[in-house]
């Protein structure tokens, strides 16, 4: 079954007199449990595509379905619910809540979801252990390294067991060692939990980890190829 189906997505930006093509008739289908890397230079439309799939940005035309549900037709509130329950986000700049500890950052989304305290704690501790942050639960973001912060961000993204994780340049601020660890983690989560990963990156080392690589340029898909699975 397809986790995500994008059909003829178009998104244009006006910049002075020029029209920038964010997405130019993009169509693609993503299978459940896929591990995909979107690659391309800056401005190629990777982030725009992730934002559109995640319901963070509107489209000028086209259709997006996640698990058979039309995302492009949903209102703000329904989109928020969709993101809360079915999509996990990982950002380039980690974007943790600075005044909350690692554990509280991970708990935060589940709390809003209404997960019981016991289950919340258990899942948060488990996921932090899984991403290699055991013993660091009470540290605040400024007490963690960049790699550790990104791991917390990953833990936050997957703790509520989303069907889809959208990661935008997750390794951009990480050194090679941290990048390796993070990608290993993504692969493990993909394999163990059958979570679909869609990662936007222009880092060739990241692209090598993906089972499918989609190349973008000027808002269009220029390459879509299956690679050796990580």
């Amino acid at each position: 079954m397809s986790a995500v189906i994008c059909t003829d997505l178009c998104k244009y930006y006006q910049q002075g007199d020029a029209v920038i093509k964010g997405l130019d008739h993009v169509s693609l289908e993503i299978e459940q449990g896929a591990f995909i890397c979107l690659s391309g230079p800056s401005g190629s439309g990777k982030t725009t595509l992730l934002n559109a799939i995640g319901g963070l940005d509107s489209l000028d035309s086209g259709e997006i379905s996640i698990d058979g549900e039309r995302v492009d037709l949903l209102g703000k509130s329904a989109l928020a619910d969709l993101r809360l329950k079915r999509i996990g986000f990982v950002f380039q700049a980690y974007n943790l809540i600075p005044v909350l500890s690692a554990l509280e950052n991970v708990e935060f989304v589940m709390l809003v979801q209404g997960v019981s305290a016991v289950e919340r704690k258990q899942r948060s501790y488990n996921i932090l252990r899984e991403v290699g942050l055991e013993g660091m639960e009470d540290r605040r973001p400024d007490q963690l390294s960049g790699g550790q912060q990104q791991r917390v961000a990953v833990a936050r993204a997957i703790v509520s067991q989303p069907r889809l994780v959208l990661a935008d340049e997750p390794t951009a601020n990480l050194d090679s060692q941290s990048m390796e660890k993070l990608m290993t983690l993504f692969c493990e989560l993909n394999r163990m939990h059958k979570i679909t990963f869609l990662i936007a990156s222009h880092d060739q080392r990241v692209i090598a980890w993906a089972g499918r690589s989609i190349g973008m340029e000027d808002g269009r898909v220029i390459r879509d190829e299956v690679q050796q699975v990580c």
Partner: peptide, 16 residues
């Protein structure tokens, strides 16, 4: 603003 944007991206509604 940025932090609120991230929190909203996670699915938290403006009301909260």
């Amino acid at each position: 603003t940025r932090e609120f944007g991230v929190i909203m991206a996670l699915g938290i509604k403006p009301r909260r």
